[in-house]
Structures are given as C-alpha cells and as structure tokens.
C-alpha cells in the first residue's frame, strides 16, 4: 500500500483503508497498482476532492478498468458528477 504515499496519502488513511475493507479486496487492490494509479490520477485531474474517502469506503471503484471508468464518467456531465461526488461519495452509484 506504500505506493499510495506517492499521492500524499498518509499512514492513517492507509490504516483506515485496511481496517474498513475485506482483506481479499485489499489484496486485489495491491495486485492492480497500475490501474489504481491511473484512476487516482484521473480523479485528481477532474477535480474529485474526496479520493481518500472513496479509497476508505468504496475501494472497489479504483479497481474498475481505467478506460471503462473514464468512459463511464464521460457519459455524464463530468463537472456536475464530480460536484455531486464531492458532496456525497455515493453519487458514484450513478455510474
């Protein structure tokens, strides 16, 4: 999980990710580092401010294939969707 520190994610958040998620899911996450990195970079680029909360509470989002995720976001008005997600992370359920 150390690779998350490249994005300024702290030990405390990493701990919460581990505690809040099934260990099998965390293992899948670690196995998909490259895809996760791309998704985090994408989220940063579109202005999602709640990346840490998404990691803690919806870890599986980051495992969605990067291209599929981007395509799904782009089927919405991205700025509006981003605003909704920043208010309530469950707005990702719209995807």
């Amino acid at each position: 999980m150390e690779f998350l520190k490249e994005f300024g994610i702290t030990d405390e958040v990493i701990y919460r990710i581990e505690v809040n998620n099934d260990k099998a899911l965390v293992f899948s996450f670690i196995c998909s580092k490259d895809n996760v990195r791309k998704n985090i970079e994408y989220f940063e680029s579109i202005g999602i401010e709640v990346i840490e909360l998404l990691l803690i509470y919806r870890l599986e989002i980051f495992l969605i294939d990067y291209e599929i995720l981007v395509k799904s976001f782009e089927s919405f008005q991205v700025p509006t969707l981003v605003q909704l997600i920043n208010e309530d992370i469950n707005a990702v359920n719209l995807l």
Partner: peptide, 19 residues
C-alpha cells in the same frame, strides 16, 4: 438521471465532504 430521480446527500449532512 436517465429519467430517474435519485437522491444524494448534501455534503454538509453527509459529513464526508472535504469542505
């Protein structure tokens, strides 16, 4: 969305919003 109405929590209430 897609002719369906859905609810989202206001950030101030969800308590999860960074702001």
């Amino acid at each position: 969305n897609n002719n369906l109405s859905q609810l989202a929590l206001q950030g101030k209430v969800s308590g999860l919003s960074s702001t």
